[in-house]
């Protein structure tokens, strides 16, 4: 469905020299340098998959999406989506995809949502019956019916985002590209959008590629993530695999009724493989427990040992969150093993 081979994109950036003399010299010879936004990436996404495309700011996510949607011409490499070359066959190709840029509206600012949809229906040549059937589903799932008469500029961000999604799916595209679709949205809208994307994916086998900085989006939607760093893919694979590889510890945070110190705690748990770390005050302590398959029962052992000699006010067990895993990967630069 999406086939990317050795894709590369660099931007030529002109740097302006300082002052009037500099501007004058710029007229004749401009200094410029290349920014390699996407270095050399290859991947394949089969039909019906939802893939999370993640990376730090400036990693090259949007640049990739823009090449995949035919907006930008790749500097090198090959893209085949839906059997077409996005840039060369752009006008035919874009009929088969839907695009949402969270940062920017795809709708016409001044006209009512309904009218926008009607224009898009003409633009994409969707016939009345398909439109009716398909849009009913979309509008009801996204809860858009009341907003149809409002002009886009009067919508709240969350309302607009839902309208954008509906607009992107109006022609029932085989692939949906979403660049930060949940940016700035509240939790409820985010959840609604996730539900909707899942439903569309299940009903129509729509392939979805989305970028986001909100890892909970990825956790809710994607089986697979592609992780990008400095224009290179540093991880491409299963989300659960990633977690298994990186989650090696559990954190157990305690709050005790009485202040205590690290020596006392360590001696109380001597027989366990547990490291203690100070919390925010002398009442709060965090035990770090390595996870291994053999020592499944260890949490309860820790509990027994600790509660025998201390009164516990509060307790929290936490795994390393995906977010932290990802941060760790970036710090190391690549995924090993």
């Amino acid at each position: 469905m999406i086939q990317v081979r050795n894709l590369h994109k660099s931007y030529r950036v002109h740097s302006a020299r300082k002052g009037v003399a500099g501007a004058f010299r710029d007229l004749f010879s401009r200094q410029s340098y290349e920014v390699n936004a996407v270095q050399d990436i290859s991947f394949h996404i089969p039909r019906g998959e939802i893939v999370g495309y993640i990376g730090e700011n400036g990693a090259g996510k949007s640049t990739t999406i823009k090449m995949l949607t035919g907006i930008l011409t790749p500097s090198c490499g090959e893209i085949i989506c839906n059997g077409m070359n996005p840039h060369m066959q752009r006008e035919a190709y874009v009929k088969t995809i839907g695009v949402v840029f969270g940062q920017r509206s795809q709708l016409w600012w001044d006209i009512a949502v309904q009218e926008s949809f009607r224009l898009l229906k003409k633009v994409y040549q969707v016939d009345d019956r398909t439109y009716q059937h398909h849009m009913d589903l979309i509008l009801s799932t996204l809860d858009l019916s009341e907003l149809l008469d409002k002009p886009v500029r009067k919508l709240s961000l969350g309302q607009r985002m839902r309208a954008e999604l509906a607009a992107a799916l109006l022609h029932n595209p085989a692939i949906l590209f979403l660049d930060e679709p949940t940016i700035g949205l509240d939790v409820l809208v985010k959840m609604k959008i996730r539900e909707f994307l899942k439903e569309i994916n299940q009903t129509y086998q729509t392939t979805i590629l989305l970028t986001t900085h909100d890892i909970s989006d990825i956790e809710a939607l994607c089986e697979r993530v592609i992780m990008l760093d400095g224009g290179n893919i540093i991880y491409d694979g299963n989300l659960s695999e990633l977690r298994r590889k990186y989650v090696t510890k559990k954190q157990i945070s305690f709050e005790f009724t009485k202040p205590t110190d690290i020596q006392t705690l360590s001696s109380q748990t001597e027989h366990l493989n547990l490291k203690w770390k100070a919390g925010e005050n002398m009442h709060q302590w965090i035990g770090i427990l390595p996870i291994s398959i053999r020592e499944k029962a260890s949490i309860s052992e820790v509990m027994t040992a600790v509660s025998k000699q201390n009164e516990i006010v509060d307790l929290q067990v936490r795994e390393l969150a995906l977010e932290e895993i990802i941060r760790k990967i970036y710090e190391k630069g690549a995924v090993h093993g």
Binding site: I71, V94, F101
Partner: peptide, 21 residues
């Protein structure tokens, strides 16, 4: 303002879209 991105993701000649808009 980057509106061209939107224009380029629609299946009509880009100039025609801009002129119509």
């Amino acid at each position: 303002k980057g509106q061209m991105d939107r224009v380029l993701t629609r299946p009509i000649h880009s100039l025609y879209q801009v002129l119509l808009e």
